[in-house]
């Protein structure tokens, strides 16, 4: 089974990120993707976005897996909203996006989210970025997640984009080596030579997850990064779906 661990529903028109479910299914089918984890991070009213995600998944429950989103601008809503969507809407993971807010992932305001992921033993994926003058302040540097991973060892923390560029990738690897509950999702628009090989040799194939950032990027490109990498076939199978199936409690 091939599982895309990183995809969006909703519209972000300024960067061309808007597709219907049918168009997303076309991209998934063309890439041979069986299941896709989706979230809606665009609404300031998180409940509204989570309801949209749940309805999107309900139309194709065999293809999409819904993840919840919460906003730190309304911290009083976080725990209740997470409980609601997990207990009543069937969402199975959490997505946070620190760069959208004036809150680095180190900020204590995120703690209830990590605590919830720990208590429920569910995956939590976050945007991550390496240090770069263009990303300042950096709200999702991979090392920032170590504190939460150590405090909440049953949370399965997934670093989206593997820190994006090389400094972030190396930082992601270091974080994963330090914490057994940190995983790394591979999609990035940087697509540097040797990046998959470096992640495998640094963090181990059992800690990597295939993702595309659909609809921003096409899953065929990121599946291609795995398939064309100089890594063992067993590693490719782990990255493309085996590890995600394990995190989500699905049969591989």
């Amino acid at each position: 089974m091939i599982i895309d661990f990183h995809a969006h529903v909703g519209s972000m028109d300024s960067i061309g990120a808007r597709l219907t479910a049918d168009a997303m299914l076309h991209a998934m089918d063309a890439a041979g993707v069986d299941r896709c984890c989706v979230f809606n991070i665009f609404h300031a009213d998180a409940a509204f976005g989570n309801d949209l995600t749940a309805r999107f998944v309900a139309a194709h429950p065999d293809r999409f897996i819904g993840f919840a989103f919460v906003t730190p601008h309304y911290p009083e809503e976080m725990e209740g909203e997470l409980a609601r969507v997990f207990d009543h809407l069937g969402l199975q993971g959490i997505k946070i996006y620190p760069p959208y807010f004036d809150r680095t992932v180190e900020d204590a305001i995120w703690e209830p989210v990590f605590a919830f992921a720990h208590a429920r033993k569910v995956p939590l994926i976050s945007h991550s970025d390496g240090r770069d003058p263009l990303v300042n302040p950096n709200h999702g540097e991979p090392q920032m997640f170590v504190r939460w991973a150590e405090k909440y060892p049953d949370a399965r923390i997934v670093l989206g984009h593997a820190g994006n560029f090389r400094s972030g990738r190396l930082s992601s690897i270091a974080a994963a080596r330090r914490c057994a509950n940190i995983f790394i999702e591979i999609c990035t628009s940087w697509r540097e030579i040797g990046s998959i090989e470096e992640l495998v040799s640094g963090a181990g194939a059992d800690r990597l997850l295939f993702g595309s950032d659909l609809p921003l990027m096409d899953p065929r490109i990121h599946k291609g990064r795995v398939l064309t990498a100089a890594i063992p076939e067993t590693a490719k199978a782990q990255i493309l779906g085996g590890n995600a199936a394990r995190l989500l409690g699905l049969a591989a």
Binding site: E192, G194, G224
Partner: peptide, 14 residues
């Protein structure tokens, strides 16, 4: 800057 192999893989699957 970029690895060309994945995009060629993509084009073959369009």
């Amino acid at each position: 800057e970029v690895d060309p192999k994945p995009y060629l893989h993509y084009l073959r699957h369009c």
